[in-house]
């Protein structure tokens, strides 16, 4: 018998009688201002959040706060005068020198500050992880309260890869001292647009 078959047989033999799945539709948070909540949560975990009037304001902020002499990539055509629109067909290693990447998220979560990104909005799976700095554009109307609502939105989306990103990469492995910028971005900025 193959390991597969013997494992499955043992599992079938040993598993206890079937129990029901719980109803998880009852997880609600009290009425709240999700935008305010999002801002507080995200800055609380070391993220930077700016309310931007429009795309123009975002461009100005990028010019003032990032090293535009270095490589900046984006998947947003509207940002093409501050960023190179990234190609999806190149090797992931080619993004090693990216200083800043700017992408759009269509779902953000107030309770933990995370944004949901699928490979389609990332341009390339590696981009939000390999860049020295990450910026994400979020329309305020896309913010939900909790992860339950987030998964209700994601529902049966058929992505090949998707991820929640909830701040700059971090570690506290050395004596519990918090260090931002472990292997991923050193900073994460969220631009909120009304």
């Amino acid at each position: 018998m193959s390991s597969r078959d013997s494992i499955l047989a043992a599992v079938l033999k040993n598993q206890p009688p079937l129990t029901d799945l719980p109803d998880i539709s009852g997880f609600k948070v009290p009425e709240e201002d999700v935008v305010e909540k999002y801002k507080n949560t995200f800055s609380g975990i070391g993220g930077l959040v700016y309310s931007a009037k429009n795309i123009e304001a975002i461009k100005n902020h990028i010019r003032e706060n990032f090293d535009t002499g270095k490589r900046i990539v984006s998947t947003l055509p509207a940002l093409s005068d501050v960023a190179e629109i990234c190609s999806t067909s190149v090797e992931p290693q080619s993004f090693e020198d990216v200083e800043l990447s700017i992408i759009e998220s269509r779902l953000a979560v107030a309770e933990n500050g995370a944004v949901w990104l699928t490979e389609e909005v990332m341009g390339h799976r590696i981009i939000p992880y390999i860049s020295q700095h990450l910026a994400v554009v979020v329309y305020e109307s896309k913010i939900v309260s909790t992860m339950h609502e987030a998964y209700a939105k994601i529902a049966d989306e058929a992505y090949g890869f998707g991820g929640f990103i909830g701040g700059p990469s971090k570690t506290a492995d050395i004596e519990q001292a918090l260090v931002l910028g472990a292997h991923g971005p050193l900073s994460m900025t969220v631009y909120l647009i009304k």
Partner: peptide, 29 residues
């Protein structure tokens, strides 16, 4: 998939008091 909502809410809070791990990556293809 929707059960991830329950577990991702609990995991990092229980582990280190953080509202979610910075990266929760869903690998499918």
């Amino acid at each position: 998939r929707k059960h991830l909502g329950v577990f991702l809410r609990l995991l990092a809070r229980s582990a280190i008091g953080q509202p979610i791990t910075i990266y929760s990556s869903h690998f499918r293809k």
